[in-house]
């Protein structure tokens, strides 16, 4: 638990925690609005965005990929809204139509284009590669105070920290109108709150979390963290503020224990190799949800 931990395990654990919290925060409001699937949708539609960015630039670089992913997310959000309003159908159905179509388009693009020579595949988009985000410059805990060593941190760490900061500030600043318009949109509009731009801003925040996270951890964690911690938290309390706090606790718990279980769990039961950290983190969040559904104090409706 010294130099090796700081170099090999600390960065992925921190990134996992940042991703989990960044997704869980907006996830609370998406869940209560019946829009929880939007996280699923966004994390799928980034695939065609990445592929198009690769086809245009020929590079597997973070910058163009983030731009491509963000562009695809924006197109998806606009398309979902358009289908929902023009078709007058519920949001879930609109999301289902758009994100499956865009993800399928991404898979086709990927197969038709010559991406075999580079590391760009569906598995990577789904599971990410959390374990590879190591900090080779670290020589021990002291490296956390060493500017030269800190410069060698995986770029995903500061990027994810920035994304979480933006999301946390948004949720903190707009807490009241978010809560109001989520509970009673008609009343909120009567107060003069512009609920449509606010709802769009919430979706954009979710897209920021999903796009910033997909490269590091893949879409499995993103999808799980948008839904599982807030859903589990809802069954622990009947107050919105407490629910959000519980969801953050659950998200951190899932990220840390999921990473540790993936790395050491198989060894404890006699197996040789470790398992996917992203998969284990998502699984742990699902187990937490299951436990809350069985034993949470507020798991029944109306009482």
């Amino acid at each position: 638990m010294g130099a090796e931990f700081v170099a090999l395990s600390l960065p992925p654990i921190l990134i996992g925690v940042l991703v989990a919290v960044a997704c869980a925060l907006p996830g609370n409001f998406l869940l209560l609005r019946g829009q929880a699937l939007i996280g699923d949708a966004i994390s799928h539609v980034v695939l065609p965005g990445i592929v198009v960015a690769f086809l245009l630039t020929g590079l597997v670089a973070t910058g163009p990929m983030l731009l491509g992913a963000a562009g695809a997310a924006v197109i998806a959000v606009v398309a979902i809204e358009a289908v929902r309003r023009l078709g007058k159908i519920e949001a879930g159905a609109a999301m289902g139509v758009i994100f499956t179509a865009m993800f399928a388009g991404g898979v086709l693009l990927l197969e038709q284009s010559d991406t075999s020579s580079v590391h760009l595949d569906v598995e990577h988009a789904l599971y990410g590669n959390l374990e590879s985000l190591i900090w080779l410059d670290a020589t021990g805990w002291g490296s956390l105070l060493d500017p030269v060593a800190l410069a060698g941190l995986p770029v995903e760490l500061p990027r994810m920290a920035l994304a979480l900061l933006v999301i946390a500030v948004f949720v903190g600043l707009f807490w009241r109108p978010l809560a109001l318009s989520t509970f009673d949109e008609g009343f909120a509009r009567g107060l003069g709150i512009r609920t449509a731009p606010l709802g769009l801003a919430l979706v954009i925040m979710s897209a920021i979390a999903a796009v910033a996270a997909f490269d590091a951890v893949g879409s499995i964690i993103v999808i799980a963290m948008f839904i599982c911690p807030p859903a589990a938290a809802r069954m622990m309390t009947n107050r919105l503020g407490h629910q959000v706090a519980w969801s953050v606790v659950f998200a951190v718990l899932a990220a840390v224990s999921g990473y540790v279980l993936a790395g050491y769990g198989p060894l404890w039961i006699g197996a040789q190799a470790s398992v996917s950290a992203a998969g284990m983190i998502a699984t742990v969040s699902g187990i937490i949800l299951g436990l809350a559904a069985v034993a949470g104090p507020h798991r029944t409706r109306n009482g």
């Binding site: 209560l32 809560a179 509970f183 009947n238 107050r239 629910q243």
Partner: peptide
Amino acid sequence: TSVDWDFPVR
């Protein structure tokens, strides 16, 4: 009837 009365507020 326009709101969700299971919403987590007091």
